[in-house]
Design a protein around this nucleic acid. Structure first.
Lengths: 152, 152
DNA sequence: TTTTATGCAAAGTATTTGCACGGGA
DNA sequence: TCCCGTGCAAATACTTTGCATAAAA
């Protein structure tokens, strides 16, 4: 079942002259509907449940396109950076649970980050183009000892 | 020539029961004396100028040890995360020039980041364990059009 | 002398490319 | 029909492991 987000994505693909194929649909639906960081291999395994003939290579190629269209983003973590999540709308930052891997977004530009960036810009002489800000922690569900595992 | 930092590193290696070898010295001196993010392969190439017999495998193994001893840290960038720089003392953040790759450090905890982290912690219910904050921009040297390239 | 560290070769992973076929538009 | 997209196989990184030798302590 395609979510609203998938619809949007499919439209955006079309707008950019890409074809709508079963493979792409399967890959998009998997990433769209996941709250967790997924590696290409995980995407492949999950998407094959929706479209048996899918190949891993196509997953890589589709991921490239989705990144290019700014529909998904690569997530960097201490454990590696081969994971992807849907791109947040506007500029948002990631909050990642190191227990279950669930990802949420937050923003905090004006109040805190922008002034700091300005400070650094002034004192360093750099022209600052972008920033990364990510938080790692334990989500409320994972703080309850009994419930540590998760499904995608 | 060994810098002061290299001396410190060699001492720390010794303290932790590791042997001081020509290979390790070469690797450490290269990373210590570079202002730039270096990949294992780059470290290998540079360190071989100091110690011809060095093997790439030893570079990987030495990097592991240096990370473990908290003497170097992995740097995450949009282009990938196989680079390393000396670990900053205390908790600092990275400012990376996307033109020449030079890395510098800044701090900005109390004034801005801590309150934001607290906010997110309260509103999300997460127990936040760590954060990443990195800035990307163009350093003052690279802002002068004539001088864009760099050497390591 | 003892034991760690090294370098080489080989084995794993992860990702990309070449190419003929299949399926969207 | 036309041509993009696909899957397979192979190629290419990148990194780790096994093992006999070299070298630090």
């Amino acid at each position: 079942m395609a979510t609203n987000r998938t619809e949007t994505w499919l439209r955006k693909l079309k707008e950019n002259g890409y074809r709508l194929t079963a493979s792409r649909k399967a890959v998009m639906e998997v990433i769209t509907s996941s709250q967790f960081v997924l590696s290409p291999l995980q995407v492949y395994e999950l998407a094959r449940k929706r479209y048996q003939k899918l190949g891993l290579v196509t997953v890589y190629r589709t991921i490239d396109k989705l990144v290019e269209l700014n529909l998904i983003q690569r997530v960097h973590q201490p454990s590696g950076c081969q994971g992807f999540v849907p791109a947040s709308m506007g500029h948002q930052h990631l909050l990642i649970c190191t227990e279950c891997g669930i990802v949420s977004y937050f923003s905090g530009e004006n109040e805190s980050i922008n002034p700091l960036v300005k400070n650094v810009e002034n004192s360093s002489g750099y022209s600052i183009k972008s920033h990364w800000f990510q938080l790692f922690g334990i989500c409320s569900d994972c703080q309850i000892p009994q419930k540590t595992d998760s499904t995608i």
